[in-house]
């Protein structure tokens, strides 16, 4: 799968950070990786079904997550403020995924309520035959990444989904 398939989420992440978090963000090129990254401490996860089956995750080191959600929420939120912290990380993941969803061109995609995983260097395990696309992200608050783990793209026009042209043109 072409890693550029993740372009709608890159665009959505950029929009979310520039408007709601008010942080400039830079991205490395999306890359296909063998497994989900294990260097992060906080992940907001959205399950995907329908047009795409898999999951979307946004993963941070703790300190970066604290800085970003505090800017997002407009008040200082640390990981110890568990309920507020989890709500903010989940909402950020939710906004990015919902914003990017229509740009995949894969028909109806149903998304789950966000889940948030906390734990130093945690591992999000997805089926071994999933394709995982990771996009390293850089902000003044720290580095983090967005990941798309895809089991299948269920669409009559699946080939169109895998063509990055439309999404890339939008950036």
């Amino acid at each position: 799968m072409d890693p550029q398939f993740a372009n709608p989420l890159i665009h959505a992440t950029q929009k979310a950070f520039e408007s709601l978090v008010q942080l400039e963000i830079a991205f490395d090129e999306p890359i296909v990786v063998a497994s989900m990254p294990e260097e992060f401490d906080v992940s907001g996860i959205i399950g995907l079904s329908g047009g795409i089956i898999g999951l979307f995750a946004i993963s941070f080191p703790t300190e970066t997550a604290e800085k970003i959600v505090s800017t997002f929420a407009g008040s200082t939120i640390g990981i110890s403020d568990r309920e507020d912290f989890v709500d903010a990380v989940g909402e950020l993941a939710n906004i990015i995924m919902r914003s990017g969803i229509s740009k995949f061109g894969c028909g109806d995609i149903t998304i789950s309520s966000p889940s948030v995983v906390l734990g130093n260097h945690h591992c999000i395990q997805t089926p071994s035959d999933n394709t995982i696309i990771m996009v390293p992200c850089h902000t003044s608050a720290g580095d983090f990444s967005i990941e798309l783990s895809i089991r299948s793209v269920n669409s009559p026009s699946a080939s169109a989904c895998l063509t990055p042209v439309a999404a890339a043109a939008e950036r």
């Binding site: 929009k15 979310a16 408007s19 939710n94 906004i95 919902r98 229509s102």
Partner: peptide, 25 residues
């Protein structure tokens, strides 16, 4: 976060006065 035209039209028909799409400034 739903920016598709169908959702917006549906909401306006149901009586919403304005529609703001997330993410917003």
């Amino acid at each position: 976060s739903e920016a598709c035209k169908t959702s917006i039209v549906e909401a306006i028909k149901a009586g919403v006065n304005d529609y703001v799409v997330k993410p917003f400034s």
